[in-house]
Computed example of a mutant assay.
Amino acid sequence: MYLREVHAETDINRLQDFVKDNPLGILTTAIKSTTYPLIQASHIPFILEVSDRHEATANGNEGSDTGLIYGVLRGHIAKQNPQAKALMDALAATQNEHHDPQIKELPEEVLVLFNGPAHHYVTPKFYVETKPATGKVVPTWNYSAVQAYGKIRVYCDSKSDETSSFLQRQLEDLSQHAETSIMGHTGGDRPSPWAVSDAPVSYVNLLKKNIIGIEICIHRLEGKFKMNQDKGNGDREGVIQGFKDLKSDVGDNIARTVKERGDLKDLKDKRA
């Protein structure tokens, strides 16, 4: 992604929180195959695991050569998905090449894109300072996104205890995260969360045979908040008010984010 300094977010904790808050990622792969397209993408909800062993620095743009890991993404894909089939074929070829059936990781780097909850067109009419003064304004689009890069491990042997355990943990963790963090099902005054154990074991085991597990160690994490930080305070206030006047959830979200990112930029400028 094109990262102008004014729009770039390099705080690893903020980027990780963004992924946790917006877990539906777009897994993009470029795997050479005579059967399936080279470039494929699928929308997949992910769990981001961050622990003490996942080191982080203030610079999220370092490559895998540094040995740093910014977290591990875990997800699953239906076996009938052509992207899953390409991953399984690539894994089998890698295992055969190295004569090692225990290999799980593919050599190709993959990308997972996470988009923010709101994006919107920005009319030049919102720039209440510059438009009347010079007219030198054009439309743009406000959005936020994080890109995670890393090597992918594939768990697809339905007869393997390792695959079964990975998928069980993945399904339980993903359900728990979605039920509590997204749905707010935390018990007490709120509804209790649904759990995988609420479904029959035989049913869950049947479903597990029809999916594959994926795990991505993140070696590069990049984020962008394009929210009018490059504008002056007057134009920024015009954008905030303009989006508030839309009287919509998206408008309110954008207005709030424009203010937050503008305040962060102003604070950074004062410290510089």
Rank of each mutant, 00 (worst) to 15 (best):
N81R: 01
H76V: 03
L91D: 00
E55N: 11
E55K: 11
G60M: 04
D52S: 12
N96E: 15
M88E: 13
P82K: 00
L87C: 03
I69A: 06
E49Q: 11
L48S: 09
T94R: 14
A86W: 14
N61W: 03
A84T: 08
S64P: 14
N59C: 08
L87P: 01
L48Q: 09
I77G: 05
G63T: 13
I44G: 09
E97H: 04
M88Y: 01
D89Q: 14
V50N: 05
N59F: 05
L68H: 05
R74T: 13
A90W: 04
N59W: 02
P45S: 03
H99C: 02
G75R: 02
H99R: 08
P45A: 02
N81F: 00
A92N: 06
V50L: 05
L48V: 09
I44P: 14
G75K: 04
E49I: 08
Q80Y: 07
I77L: 15
H98L: 06
H43Q: 13
D52H: 13
Q83W: 14
I47K: 09
G60Q: 05
Q83V: 09
L87F: 07
H99Q: 09
A92Y: 00
H43E: 12
H43W: 07
R53F: 13
V72D: 15
G63E: 15
I77Q: 13
A58N: 13
N81E: 07
K79H: 01
G67W: 11
I77W: 04
N59M: 04
R74K: 13
G63Y: 08
P82N: 02
D52G: 05
H99M: 10
N81A: 02
K79D: 01
E62H: 02
R74S: 06
Q83H: 09
D89S: 08
V50K: 04
R53K: 13
A90D: 06
A84R: 13
T94C: 01
N61D: 04
Q80G: 00
N61K: 15
I69M: 02
N96A: 15
Q95H: 04
I47P: 00
T57M: 03
R74P: 02
A58V: 08
A84W: 14
Q83L: 15
G67A: 03
I47Q: 07
S42K: 02
R53I: 07
E55P: 07
E97K: 13
S51R: 10
A56W: 12
K79Q: 06
Q83P: 05
A41I: 08
H76P: 02
L73I: 01
S64G: 08
L68A: 10
L87M: 15
N96Q: 13
I47C: 08
V50P: 06
D89M: 03
K79W: 06
N61A: 03
I77V: 11
G60K: 12
H43G: 08
T94A: 10
R53Q: 09
T57W: 07
A92T: 15
N81T: 05
Q95R: 15
V50E: 07
I69K: 09
